[in-house]
Simulated assay, not measured.
Amino acid sequence: MLIAGLCGVIASVAWLVGDILLLGKPMGTAAQYPLLTSYDGTARDSLAAMLPASTTRLAWGALLGVLTGPLYLVACRQLRQGLRPAPRLLSVPPYLLIVTGFALAPFAHGSFYYWGQAAKAVHASGVRSAALTGLPGDMAAVLFIPYGVLLACWAAGSVWMAVCVLRGPTVFPRWMCVVNPLVCIPVGALLTRAVPGAAGTAVQGAALSAGNLLFFALSTAVLWKRRE
């Protein structure tokens, strides 16, 4: 369980660095990149951060997440073992839901490279056709589908995991009912937004990775202490 937890910590750090490379540049403006006027919300912010980044930077940002993605699947074994003393009806579903989310995550993370490169190519072409301008939007629509599914899996798995820990018996103490992706990711978002200056800009797109780092760091620390 401890090795699995450390795999989760290592993967989260790698994904955090990947997020910094993908989305950690100061955001471009619509004056610099007219393409941005066609988008709003999360899509606009993501493209505004990726357009100023180099191809090499985007590639390494994506690859760090994709190549270390299997470590997350190993890390989820920690959850399975930690919940195992509880009845299977309580302990197996949250493990399956959370591991499904992590299985989908590398596709979503790696796709940012192609999304960013497509937007950079449209901008560099200087052509303002509807087909070209709509290409990054079409890619974003597909990209956000696995993100929505994985977040739904994490949310459902987190609620089920909390119930399992509260009802017991599990290896985790009952206060660990609040240590799950549904809680840790919003906390990660708050932490990344609280970082000031250039460091805050660097981690502006790293909320999920920061939350997962908090999740696996706490679960590993608890199990380490119980082992002692």
Rank of each mutant, 00 (worst) to 15 (best):
S125V: 00
A48D: 02
H123C: 07
T56W: 10
L89S: 12
P85M: 04
C153Q: 10
S125E: 00
I145F: 15
L135A: 14
C153F: 12
K120P: 05
V127K: 12
S54V: 07
L73W: 00
D138P: 09
A152H: 11
V66F: 03
A118P: 06
L64P: 04
A121W: 11
W115L: 14
L73G: 00
L143I: 13
I98W: 06
G61W: 01
P94L: 09
I98R: 07
A131C: 13
Q78M: 05
T68D: 01
I145C: 13
A121Q: 11
A62Y: 05
W60H: 09
G134P: 13
L64E: 02
A59R: 12
Q117I: 08
A124V: 04
D45E: 15
L90S: 14
S46Q: 13
A156S: 12
Y114V: 07
G126Y: 04
L47K: 07
V92C: 02
R128H: 13
S54I: 08
A131R: 11
A121R: 12
G137Q: 10
Q78H: 00
V163M: 11
I145M: 15
R88H: 07
L97Y: 10
A49K: 08
A155K: 11
A48V: 06
D45W: 14
A131Y: 13
G101S: 05
M139E: 08
R80P: 01
L58N: 03
D138V: 14
A118S: 14
Y95K: 09
G116S: 04
R57L: 09
S91P: 08
L58K: 05
A131H: 12
V149A: 11
G110K: 04
L135I: 10
L96F: 03
G82R: 03
A119S: 08
A103D: 01
I145S: 12
V163S: 09
A162K: 13
P93F: 06
A103V: 02
G137N: 12
R80D: 01
L51R: 06
W154A: 11
S46E: 13
V122S: 04
A131P: 10
T55W: 02
A53T: 05
L97W: 12
S46G: 11
L73I: 02
D45R: 15
V92I: 11
V92L: 13
F102Y: 05
P87K: 03
A103S: 07
H109Y: 11
A162Q: 14
A119V: 07
S125G: 02
S54K: 09
P136Y: 08
P52R: 03
W60P: 08
R84K: 10
A141N: 15
Y147I: 15
G148P: 14
Y113V: 05
R77P: 00
G116C: 04
S111M: 09
R128Q: 13
S129D: 15
L73R: 00
W160H: 15
S129M: 13
T68C: 05
Y147M: 15
Q81A: 00
Y113H: 06
R84V: 01
T100V: 00
A105M: 09
G82I: 03
Y95P: 09
A59P: 08
G61K: 02
Q78W: 00
Y113R: 04
L71G: 00
L90T: 07
Y95L: 07
P87I: 04
G134W: 10
A103W: 01
G101D: 03
S46W: 10
